[in-house]
Every structure is written in C-alpha cells, then in structure tokens.
C-alpha cells in the first residue's frame, strides 16, 4: 500500500512511522525546507506527562498519553525517565492542593524531599508533587531522529512541497498539516503559545518542573548542557508573529521565581507558534470525500504526548476502511 503523509510535524512523522511499521510505502510532503521548519511541534516542551496534564485535560489525554514514553523510547530513544516535579510558591499552596485533587500517580513531598530530588531547589520550596512515572525528551532531536529512521527504512521525504490532500498520490492520504488544514476542518482553531530557550551554568535540573500560579502557570524543561526551555503561554489567538513583552516577562518571572540564578541566564531563543485545536481540545481523525483522505489534527498542547496513540489509530483506520477508532469522525 502506498500512502502520502502531508506535514512533517510530530503527527505526520508519527503516523508515517506507524504506517511504515505496518508495511506501507510512505511518502511525506512537507512545505517547509526541513523537519520542524513550519511545525509547531518544533517549539514543544517535550514533556511526556500524562498524569500532570490531567489537571486540565480530559480523560483520554491521560489514558492514551501513558503509551507515549515507551513509544518514543522504542522509536528514537532518548526519553529521560526522571519524573516531573510540580511546585508552588508558599502563598500559592492552594494551587498545589487543587492540582493534587485533579491528578493521580504522584507522591506528596516536603521541602527536604524536593531538595533530595532536585538539589539546586533545596530550601526554596516547602512542598511539592512528584510524578515519578513521567518523562521528557528533546523534541527537536526526536523529530529529526524519527525522520532519519523513516528515510533509512525507505520512506521518501519531500521538502518544500505544499501538497494538497486531494492531489496527493497513493492509495491513502494522511493530512497532518495542523492549522494549515483549517480550510477543510471547520472548528479548528489556533491557540497561541510562546516559549523561551535559555542557558544557565548556575542551575541544574534533571526533570521538568511546573511552577503553579493562579494567573501564570509555567514549566521549565531541562535540555542538557545548561539549556532550558521555558514555556508556554496559552492564548486564544492565531497570531504567530512574535512573542509579546508581557509573555516574556511572565516566562522569565517564572524562571526567576523558581531560582533567582536564572536572572543571569542567556536568552538563546524566543519562540512563538499556534497549536491546532478543536473546541474540546481533543484530537480528531476525520475521513473525507471518497475515504482516501484521513485528516489527523487537533493535538492542541499534546503533540508529543498523544501522537503515538493517534498515529496508531490513524494507521489502523488507513489499513482497515471499517475501523472506527476513538476520535474518529466520518
């Protein structure tokens, strides 16, 4: 079976990988000039945190997201399984209680334990939640490695190619274009996210840290070699031009609150993009026309977390016209 996949973001690459594993001959069309060039997954945090996400996400995100750690380890490796840490400043203790009520699979820890888990945060926080089963990866490396693996096993990657689903060759077409598919997917909207990449030689973290705040909940993900990703805003807007001053203040403020040494960090990069989402912030598999085209979209802020499960469902739906996986719509 020959399948065209349009879009080389995390969804397109994951779908291509699942299809290739099932014996399909895959061609990937990407309008950008390289992997991640025009994908919002390029800016992702890379947290594989299904239990933390349950705080504001619906049940499928936790259940399906739990598959993600093993999937990514199996495909590209590099998953750091050091758990994740959820903290709040003293006066926001109520936020920590609320987070705990909405989530599971954590250990309530005191300040001593916070310091044992992340020595550089010793003495800075009196309480926290430790989600030992979670992990994180470097999203850019994961995308590049996934593409490399696909190519090594015979997939064709065509960059600089803005293919339309109806014109794409093959027995089946997977449209994984994200927000670019909004013309054929009514209800798809953009949710703006802004992030920073900073470098600090003064602070070492081994796992993502979420800092709860009633107005500005943010997270910091270590990327190794003193590099950290600080993310991410969530704004109902499809503006992807630039980060706002207020957002940068909030992101840096959170980093500074976590550890004042971040005040001397270098700002390596600012990022802004728009996450594709439907009204319920859950993904959709939508079959169109004569059934040759399957749109896979709406990953919202859960690209790396849900791509494995959604790709599996998409591959099943492509290979079996009678399959009606979760999130499937005719």
């Amino acid at each position: 079976m020959k399948v065209s996949v349009i879009g080389a973001g995390v969804v397109g690459l994951a779908c291509a990988s699942e299809l290739q594993a099932r014996g399909a001959k895959v061609t990937i069309y990407e309008q950008g000039e390289s992997v991640g060039d025009s994908a919002c997954s390029w800016w992702a945090g890379g947290m594989l945190a299904p239990w933390c996400e349950r705080e504001s996400a619906e049940e499928p995100v936790e259940r399906l997201g739990a598959e993600a750690l093993d999937w990514w380890d199996g495909r590209v490796g590099g998953v750091e399984r050091n758990g994740s840490l959820v903290l709040a400043l003293g006066r926001d203790a109520g936020e920590l209680r609320r987070f705990a009520r909405r989530t599971s699979e954590y250990e309530e820890i005191d300040g001593t334990r916070v310091g044992a888990i992340e020595p550089d945060l010793a003495g800075r926080f009196g309480a926290g939640l430790y989600f030992a089963g979670e992990g994180h990866l470097n999203p850019r490396r994961a995308l590049a490695d996934l593409a490399k693996g696909l190519a090594a096993r015979g997939a064709e990657l065509c960059f600089g190619s803005a293919m339309e689903p109806d014109n794409a060759p093959g027995d089946a077409v997977l449209d994984c274009r994200g927000l670019a598919a909004r013309d054929v997917l009514p209800g798809l909207r953009g949710v703006k996210g802004e992030m920073l990449v900073i470098r600090s030689a003064d602070v070492t973290l081994s796992r993502p840290v979420r800092l709860l705040h009633p107005r500005i909940p943010l997270y910091i993900v270590p990327r190794g070699d003193g590099v950290f990703m600080v993310g991410a805003t969530m704004i109902e807007s499809d503006d992807r031009t630039r980060i706002s001053a207020r957002s940068m203040l909030e992101l840096l403020g959170a980093a500074y609150a976590l550890h004042p040494a971040f005040g001397e960090a270098e700002i390596l990069e600012t990022g802004v993009d728009v996450r594709p989402a439907f009204a319920d912030n859950l993904p959709r598999l939508v079959r169109h026309g004569n059934g040759r085209v399957l749109h896979v979209n709406g990953m919202y802020r859960h690209g790396f977390l849900l791509a494995p499960a959604v790709a599996r469902m998409a591959a099943e739906a492509v290979l079996d016209a009678t399959a009606t996986p979760e999130f499937f719509q005719c």
Binding site: R189, G190, K192, I235, E236, S237, D238, D239, T241, R242, S244, R246
Partner: peptide
C-alpha cells in the same frame, strides 16, 4: 486585550 495579538483580530476563532 491579549487575544488580539499585534493589534489585529487574531482571536477571531474563539
């Protein structure tokens, strides 16, 4: 205020 982005109507979908 924040949803409008750079002075435009970037929050139209919502």
């Amino acid at each position: 205020r924040r949803e409008a982005g750079g002075g435009g109507g970037a929050g139209q979908d919502f």
